[in-house]
Amino acid sequence: MVKLVALYRQPQDREAFDRHYREVHLPLARRMPGLRRVEVARITGAPGGSSPYYLMAEMYFDDAASLEAALQSPEGRAAGKDLMGFAGEIVSLHIAEVVQES
């Protein structure tokens, strides 16, 4: 299993970010073919202090080929275009292989 991890730094307007993420972006992302699960977590801090991150989203796929196909699909391209439009300055994307599941 692999996952696409999106890390969002602190947005200027949290309320506007949360509204767009919840009402527009997440529904677009959930339409990607092959998506198995989505986890979204609000970052509340780091050991010993604060964190530069505000939100983390993890989108799970069966394998790297499924993830790549999802990103290249019309649904994936629509989600990517929306992401760059509302959070391009504050997001970083990472691909991770799940090596152990609980």
Rank of each mutant, 00 (worst) to 15 (best):
Val2Ile: 14
Lys3Ser: 01
Lys3Ile: 08
Leu4Asp: 01
Leu4Ser: 02
Val5Leu: 11
Leu7Thr: 11
Tyr8Lys: 05
Arg9Pro: 02
Arg14Val: 12
Glu15Tyr: 02
Glu15Gly: 00
Glu15Ile: 05
Ala16Asp: 06
Ala16Trp: 01
Asp18Tyr: 09
Asp18Lys: 09
Arg19Phe: 02
His20Tyr: 10
Tyr21Gly: 07
Tyr21Cys: 06
Tyr21Met: 08
Arg22Lys: 13
Glu23Val: 14
Val24Thr: 15
Val24Ser: 06
Val24Phe: 04
His25Ile: 13
His25Asp: 00
Arg30Ile: 03
Arg31Gln: 14
Pro33Tyr: 00
Pro33Gly: 00
Gly34His: 04
Leu35Gln: 01
Arg36Leu: 10
Arg36Thr: 00
Arg36Ala: 02
Arg37Phe: 01
Arg37Gln: 11
Val38Asn: 02
Val38Pro: 10
Glu39Gln: 13
Glu39Tyr: 05
Glu39His: 08
Ala41Arg: 14
Ala41Lys: 05
Ala41Asn: 12
Arg42Met: 00
Arg42Tyr: 11
Ile43Val: 15
Thr44Cys: 10
Gly45Ile: 05
Gly45Met: 01
Ala46Gln: 12
Ser50Val: 09
Ser51Pro: 13
Ser51Arg: 07
Pro52Val: 02
Pro52Ser: 07
Leu55Ile: 03
Glu58Gln: 15
Met59Lys: 03
Phe61Trp: 05
Phe61Lys: 08
Asp63Gln: 03
Ala64Leu: 15
Ala65Ile: 07
Ala65Asp: 14
Ala65Cys: 03
Ser66Phe: 00
Gln72Tyr: 02
Ser73Ile: 10
Gly76Ser: 04
Gly76Arg: 05
Ala78Cys: 05
Ala78Val: 12
Ala79Arg: 04
Ala79Leu: 09
Asp82Ser: 09
Asp82Ala: 06
Asp82Arg: 07
Met84Glu: 15
Ala87Pro: 08
Ala87Gly: 14
Glu89Trp: 00
Ile90Ala: 03
Val91Cys: 06
Val91Asn: 04
Leu93Phe: 11
His94Phe: 15
His94Asp: 04
His94Gln: 14
Ala96Thr: 12
Ala96Gln: 10
Ala96Gly: 11
Glu97Gly: 09
Glu97His: 08
Val98Leu: 08
Val98Trp: 00
Val98Asn: 03
Val99Leu: 09
Val99Asn: 02
Gln100Ala: 12
Gln100Glu: 08
Glu101Cys: 01
